[in-house]
């Protein structure tokens, strides 16, 4: 498992919120100006720290939504029982300071090498965030590596980055599956991702694709074991999980 070693101390830095973008009813993208940011890879995450007037602090990790070279952006889903995500999605305003630290994580990344094999991106809900960084990176690099994104959302209204995904150009196939509610006349996939859907949608194993799977734990467990069952070598299935962590 060769990897890019990330060395040197990561220090907290103060960024400024430049814009907040509504993605869905419960999801916002937060764009930041971070003068001391040393850059990141597609797929990495960062830590956010909030400090109350009495000194109380709360920290959480979020995937970075922007591509390498772009200003740092986070896309955050509000969790009803959360402590940090309701603040980020409802209280935060342009001009506010936000303390961040990162980037973190060097395994769930795509380094832009398009001499390699196709990418199979599989997202459950807001698990699409680090995959969006990969897609933007690919686009910025004018890479021709073929990509399929299988994106499971509750309904079309819950699809994050829908306009952007629908405008993806040649070489990128975006496949939605809607689990709870489908619009009238919906001809796409419905229901949860399972082995039979993956056998239809995922690159066949002989294409040597690399899979990036991000979503809640049961989603990732199902998808990763199904891909292995279809013949993907385990070391070509990279996973990132969220959810069930006590409410971020």
């Amino acid at each position: 498992m060769a990897g890019t070693a990330v060395r040197g101390r990561l220090t907290w830095q103060v960024s400024a919120v430049t814009a907040l973008i509504d993605e869905t009813a419960s999801v916002k993208t937060i764009e930041l100006q971070a003068p001391d940011w040393a850059g990141h890879l597609a797929g990495q995450h960062l830590d956010v720290r909030l400090t109350a007037e009495d000194g109380y602090r709360a920290e959480r990790s979020y995937s970075i939504a922007s591509a390498p070279g772009e200003p740092v952006a986070l896309t955050v889903e509000r969790l009803e029982d959360g402590e940090v995500s309701p603040y980020l999605t409802e209280e935060l305003r342009p001009g506010d300071d936000l303390e961040i630290r990162g980037p973190v994580g060097g395994y769930f990344v795509w380094d832009g090498d398009d001499s390699v094999t196709p990418l199979m991106l599989i997202a459950g809900g807001s698990g699409v965030v680090p995959l969006r960084s990969i897609l933007r990176h690919r686009s910025n690099l004018r890479s021709t590596v073929p990509v399929r994104l299988l994106y499971s959302a509750r309904s079309l209204a819950d699809v994050i980055y829908r306009d952007e995904l629908d405008q993806e150009g040649a070489g990128v196939e975006v496949i939605y599956t809607l689990t709870r509610q489908q619009p009238q006349g919906w001809t796409g996939h419905r229901g949860r991702v399972d082995k039979s859907m993956l056998s239809e949608v995922a690159w066949p194993p002989d294409q040597q694709a690399i899979a990036y799977v991000c979503g809640p734990t049961p989603f990732v467990e199902t998808v990763a074991s199904s891909l292995v069952g279809l013949g993907y070598p385990a070391q070509r299935v990279k996973t990132e999980r969220f959810g069930g962590i006590g409410g971020s």
């Binding site: 400090t51 007037e53 109380y56 603040y87 305003r93 506010d96 300071d97």
Partner: peptide, 14 residues
Amino acid sequence: MSPISRGFHGRRRE
């Protein structure tokens, strides 16, 4: 020194 997060009070005190 961390800046105060305007409007953040926190609620998950142990």
